[in-house]
């Protein structure tokens, strides 16, 4: 995958910039993001572009701003300045309802802990995003079953999250993140709570499933072995981004 410059001034995020044919237009881009929590700046001019189907690892030390960047890209947090766009739509200009709809229909999410609803079975958890999008129960559960099979955890369908291991729960989480066939998946330290073997398996299943469905993945991690599943990496330091491929 060809890396693109994150900071070229002509690459305005609110436009679909014309690029050479070998460089696809970005599906998702952020430009010059600033975000603070109280007096502490979390993002200080961060920029990033993600092409359709591309898997990008966002790396950096703890507290560098990488999770804040992911939350701004996914429309969960609003930056104080700068722009975020998804497929030509300016997220920073959207209302809460539109952002919520976008997150349900176009985005998938995978976190380190707790994304599964403890009261629901694994099958119901995976079917939940489809149900929220108005899909009938039977159809939603049929699709959820297919995803559980794909992630090799279909035997857990009737169990609740508290009854499965961390690795199994995270596979269910991958199924839930991808069940709506989102165009972008946001994964924040998805292997952070897993041992090496389970972490490897989750990454293999996540990357294979994302490639099969054509989803772009923004993967926040501090583990180089996890980042190695990505097409390229962007490093965040002190709230600023650096694309290593561009820096070379």
């Amino acid at each position: 995958m060809t890396a693109r410059s994150e900071q070229r001034p002509e690459q305005r995020p609110e436009q679909r910039p014309e690029q050479p044919s070998e460089q696809p237009s970005p599906l998702l881009s952020a430009h010059a993001l600033h975000k603070s929590f109280g007096p502490t700046p979390a993002l200080d001019g961060a920029s990033i572009t993600v092409a359709a189907g591309e898997l990008i690892a966002v790396m950096g030390p703890s507290g560098s701003g990488k999770s804040t960047l992911l939350h701004c890209l996914a429309g969960i947090l609003r930056p104080e300045s700068g722009t975020v766009s998804f497929d030509g739509l300016e997220l920073t200009g959207c209302g809460d309802a539109r952002l919520s709809e976008l997150r349900r229909s176009e985005f998938g999410f995978l976190f380190q802990f707790g994304q599964l609803v403890p009261e629901l079975t694994c099958l119901e958890n995976v079917a939940l995003p489809l149900r929220l999008n108005g899909v009938r129960r039977r159809q939603a559960e049929q699709q959820a079953t297919e995803w559980l099979e794909r992630l090799e955890v279909d035997d857990l369908a009737a169990k609740r999250p508290g009854e499965v291991s961390g690795g199994q729960g995270q596979r269910v989480g991958v199924a839930r993140a991808l069940v709506t066939r989102p165009r972008a998946v946001f994964a924040d330290e998805p292997t952070g709570a897993l041992d090496s073997l389970n972490g490897e398996r989750v990454m293999q299943l996540l990357t294979t499933a994302a490639r099969d469905t054509g989803a772009a993945v923004v993967l926040v991690t501090h583990e180089a072995r996890v980042a190695a599943y990505a097409d390229r990496e962007v490093v965040v330091r002190d709230g600023r981004t650096r694309d290593l491929a561009v820096a070379r």
């Binding site: 293999q204 990357t207 294979t208 180089a224 072995r225 980042a227 190695a228 599943y229 990505a230 097409d231 990496e233 490093v235 650096r242 290593l244 491929a245 820096a247 070379r248």
Partner: peptide, 23 residues
């Protein structure tokens, strides 16, 4: 810092290659 970043990028490039081979 550029020396370290250049080396880091090269390490990650090789790690990506090994990961693909592994898969």
């Amino acid at each position: 810092a550029d020396i370290l970043d250049t080396q880091r990028a090269e390490h990650l490039r090789l790690m990506r290659e090994l990961t693909r081979r592994k898969m």
